[in-house]
Design a protein around this nucleic acid. Structure first.
Length: 881
RNA sequence: GCGAGGAUGGCGGAAUUGGCAGACGCGCCAGACUUAGGAUCUGGUGCCUGAGAAGGCGUGGGAGUUCAAGUCUCCCUCCUCGUACCA
């Protein structure tokens, strides 16, 4: 019945492994072109592989196999991003050392990946938790430190009590932790920071030349958040020595600044607050500081703030303007203080309206009685004795006033970035130790050379102190390491080690370099090898890493470039995100408590009846119970009731997770690979369908029967060495052309469709040419490596199919004797005609032919021809009236 | 709010430069083989009208450009993703 996929797949996987068929040798022919194709390496979770993993991995595997067959040296490695929270959480819960869990999970992942037939060079696998690997992660940190790009600072950090650790800005989403969704609070803490801001401009500029999804580049641009403007000093009335420096992108509206706002954390507040307001301000600050990020932004649309009692002086007109404290100004951006121009900034407008502060229009346009005018216009109300910008456009006014500020020494042109330095320490156990030592006096020295790596010490209690007592600094697990690890004597001075560890991203930042030279004990990567293999030609992975990993890795890469370790400015020249695979489409009906069905169009997004607000029960039904009428899907037996049809993200709780192991057992790895590529375009989100798996599985069975007599279990007798006929050659060369072209463009779904067409055709042939079938196996091979190896061997070849060259198509075989020309009347298809190929491009000829066709003649005989348009080789359109 | 992407049969999706809409697969219908079929093979299958021949309508909705629009322009609706007081 079904071809013996299990036996075949096991056999060839063993063959590939034993013969190291996919090994990328260290001594390669450097004259051959190279192709470095990389997957974002996985975190080996306890849950094992899910069907999302093989999607990108199959795509890269197809590219790797295709490029090898085209004479490229291919680097196609796999490894493990194995530091991280889950193993540590498991350790906390069960006392199992994270190393044990990690090893177990890695073994499971590797077995699973091997069962899918990926052509990785397993001799190159790297593991971020391997001391031989993190030695170099630590080495890179030292390079950063030596260049002033890593520093300790007391900074307001994102403190997540539930996780017992601090998080990077990039790891906080909507005021909650990216992992787990726990609330995050701002608190000052002394932490390691990486000066990614020093690279902001280069990170922004170099995006330009990358072949990456536009959306991802745009996200990085937004994250870097470059804005141009000016910094301006405002003197504080009654405090001769104090001034408030603000950043603004709208210096042209300086005359319209009617008040100022300091962030609650601003250091000047205590100096300038008047006695009368001290108590109020303190209260406000305390409450603002206690709020989580979420409370300060998302939940609080209404502006709040308090007056300090002090006034600043608007330098353009010497007006006294009140200084307020409000949490809509963030300490972490710009200078932590703003000049408020309520007429031309919506946030300031809302604040001014609420607290009755003056609003002065300085740009013409809009209606400032209703809302702030942020558009373009001409400057008004903006002059003093010495100087005017009235009548200028916004752009010109910006330039002129900035020059004036600069001349007076009270301001200057300034570029600001939203990007902030990268908070690089975590209060966790399962991460890379920092290769530094601290002395009592606060000196920091690096650990280098033979003292690397600094290995993780053995400890028993992996728990971070989850300081609900949020006043005290959290104590990282490493602070409980044995004294022998914690203290180090050097030149008579006792140092203690760093107790924080690096975040998971650290090892992820540079693994693509280690794959090039994974065993090198002397350097991170050999210079010559690096020069040959870099940059990564194709990088495939999820869009969730658009900012985090891909920005961090680019930053480290640029540092490594600056110190001569790598030869390219950017690590990944082409990037593709595979789309998420959702579960099977589900159909559901909503019911009230009384059991009445409610049409889905009356159901709110949170599952309530929009008429009564009642929370509804959702019941999953089978597709057979539904019917589509018009553009609505309704219940078969109650067609008034609309049914909700949706595919959901796979999740354990929803019970719609598809386990790749089951597909491999039931249909084979080739079917899984083929199905995932056939589902739709790689980049698109798509939903799983078991029927679809069966469809491609049937296709592979048809391929099998194209070669094998199932009763005899041997090659069919009608496969001969005789010359193929022209039709067979044409069919073959069509599919070679289509598949070649589609693989180049990573359009695997249409490549597979073309392969299916070939098989449908070839199955009709009475006699089949062995050459033709072999060529077909070669182009099917990257998609379905096992079945093609088997048939390749059974048809009489001794060696592996992987060693053979990709077939070339020959245009001569694709030529047609006749071409079909479409005939339209007024743009509507009315007939087609076969035309000799050598006449098809002759306009006169095809027009005359078209007009002589009976079906056309009869349609136009009582009408007059206005014009005839013809496209050579394609169509004739007759315009009549 | 802002930014990006998307909407094509019953479903997943095809469709160089505007030039036969719906490739391929699923599902469905009919037939063959069969003790049987949820195996396999053959044929059919966008919708509507029609016995048929044929005709009309069709790429989220509305306008426009064009001999010709899924494809180009403008407006609108909905969906997905990202982001959110960044001065």
């Amino acid at each position: 019945m079904a071809y013996p996929f299990q036996e075949i797949e096991t056999r060839w996987q063993r063959y590939w492994e034993e013969n190291k068929v996919y090994k990328t040798d260290d001594n390669i022919d450097l004259n051959k072109p190279k192709f470095y194709v990389l997957d974002m390496f996985p975190y080996p979770s306890g849950a094992g592989l899910h069907v999302g993993h093989p999607e990108g991995y199959t795509a890269t595997d197809i590219m790797a196999r295709y490029k090898r067959m085209n004479g490229f040296n291919v680097l196609h490695p796999m490894g493990w991003d194995a530091f991280g929270l889950p193993a540590e959480q498991y350790a906390i819960e069960t006392g199992t050392h994270p190393r044990i869990t990690t090893e177990k999970n890695i073994n499971r992942f590797r077995t699973q990946l091997k069962s899918l037939g990926f052509s990785y060079d397993w001799d190159r696998q790297v593991d971020t938790t391997d001391p031989n690997y993190y030695k170099w992660t630590q080495w890179i940190f030292i390079q950063l430190f030596k260049r002033g790009l890593a520093y300790l600072a007391e900074v307001p950090v994102n403190w997540c009590p539930a996780l017992g650790t601090v998080l990077a800005n990039e790891e906080v989403i909507d005021g909650k932790s990216e992992r787990g969704g726990h609330p995050v609070y701002k608190r000052p803490m002394r932490q390691w920071m990486l000066k990614i801001t020093a690279y902001a401009e280069r990170l922004l500029e170099d995006l330009e030349g990358l072949d990456w999804p536009e959306s991802t580049k745009e996200m990085q641009r937004n994250w870097i958040g470059k804005s141009e403007g000016a910094e301006v000093d405002f003197p504080v009335s009654g405090h001769e020595n104090e001034k408030i420096r603000v950043f603004t992108t709208r210096p042209d509206t300086l005359f319209g600044a009617t008040y100022m706002v300091l962030a609650p954390e601003h250091s000047l507040i205590n100096k300038i607050v008047t006695n009368e307001y001290t108590e109020k301000v303190k209260k406000y600050r305390d409450s603002a500081l206690q709020k989580s990020d979420l409370e300060r932004t998302e939940l609080q649309k209404e502006k709040t703030g308090v007056f300090t009692g002090s006034y600043a002086i608007n330098p353009t007109n010497n007006e006294l303007i009140p200084i307020w404290v409000a949490d809509y100004v963030l300490i972490s951006y710009g200078t932590g203080a703003i000049m408020a121009v309520p007429a031309h900034d919506q946030r300031d407008y809302e604040f001014a309206t609420k607290f009755n502060l003056p609003i002065r229009q300085v740009i013409s346009g809009g209606d400032i009685t209703k809302e702030a005018f942020t558009g373009d216009g001409l400057v008004i109300n903006s002059s003093n004795e010495a100087f005017t910008i009235n009548g200028l456009s916004v752009d010109k006014a910006k330039v002129k006033i900035t020059a004036w500020l600069q001349k007076k020494g009270i301001g200057e042109y300034k570029v600001n970035y939203k990007l902030r330095d990268w908070l690089f320490s975590r209060q966790r156990y399962w991460g890379e130790p920092f290769p530094v030592l601290h002395s009592e006096k606060g000196d920091i020295i690096c650990i280098e050379g033979k003292d690397l790596p600094v290995k993780l010490p053995e400890i028993k209690d992996f728990k971070p102190r989850t300081a609900e007592e949020s006043e005290t600094d959290p104590l990282p697990p490493l602070s409980r390491a044995p004294k022998s690890w914690k203290y180090v004597e050097k030149d008579g001075v006792i140092y203690h080690r760093e107790y924080n560890t690096m975040p998971q991203w650290a090892g992820y930042c540079w693994y693509y370099l280690r794959f090039i030279d994974p065993q090198n004990a002397h350097s991170l990567v050999d210079k010559h090898k690096e020069k040959y293999w870099m940059p990564v030609d194709l990088y495939v992975g999820g869009a969730e890493h658009s900012v985090l990993h891909l920005l961090y890795a680019r930053f480290w890469h640029k540092v490594l470039y600056d110190i001569g370790v790598v030869s390219t400015k950017e690590p990944f020249s082409k990037l593709v995100h595979q789309g998420m695979i959702l579960g099977e489409t589900e159909f559901s009906v909503y019911y009230t408590k009384d059991g009445n069905a409610i049409s889905s169009s009356f159901v709110t997004s949170d599952g309530c009846y929009n008429k009564t607000g009642e929370k509804l029960n959702k019941k999953k039904i089978s597709e057979e119970d539904t019917i589509k009428i018009g553009d609505k899907i309704v219940l078969q037996n109650n067609q008034k009731i609309e049914v909700e049809s949706r595919a959901y993200k796979m999740s354990k709780s929803r019970g719609n997770v598809v386990n790749p192991d089951h597909i491999v057992t039931g249909y084979g790895a080739d079917s899984l690979r083929l199905y995932e590529m056939f589902m739709g375009p790689l980049k698109d989100m798509k939903s799983w369908s078991m029927k679809g798996v069966e469809g491609v599985h049937r296709f592979l069975n048809r391929v099998w029967r194209l070669f094998i007599d199932e009763n005899e279990n041997k090659i069919l007798g009608n496969i001969t060495t005789a010359e193929p006929d022209t039709l067979q050659l044409k069919t073959l060369h069509q599919v070679i052309k289509k598949v070649t072209c589609d693989i180049e463009n990573m359009q695997f779904n249409t490549a597979i469709a073309a392969l299916m067409i070939f098989v449908n055709e070839a199955n009709k042939w009475e006699k089949k040419s062995r050459d033709v079938l072999e060529s077909f196996l070669l182009i099917l091979n990257p998609f379905a490596p096992h079945i093609t190896e088997e048939l390749w061997q059974r048809i009489g070849n001794k060696d592996t199919i992987a060693a053979h060259r990709w077939p070339k198509y020959n245009e001569n075989y694709l030529k047609e004797d006749t071409k079909e020309i479409v005939i339209q009347i007024n743009g509507k298809l009315r007939a087609t005609m076969q035309t000799p190929a050598d006449e098809a491009d002759n306009k006169k000829y095809i027009e005359n032919q078209a007009l002589s066709i009976e079906a056309i003649k009869s349609r136009i005989e009582d009408k007059s021809i206005l014009r005839v348009i013809s496209v050579p080789g394609k169509l004739v359109n007759i315009v009549v009236k």
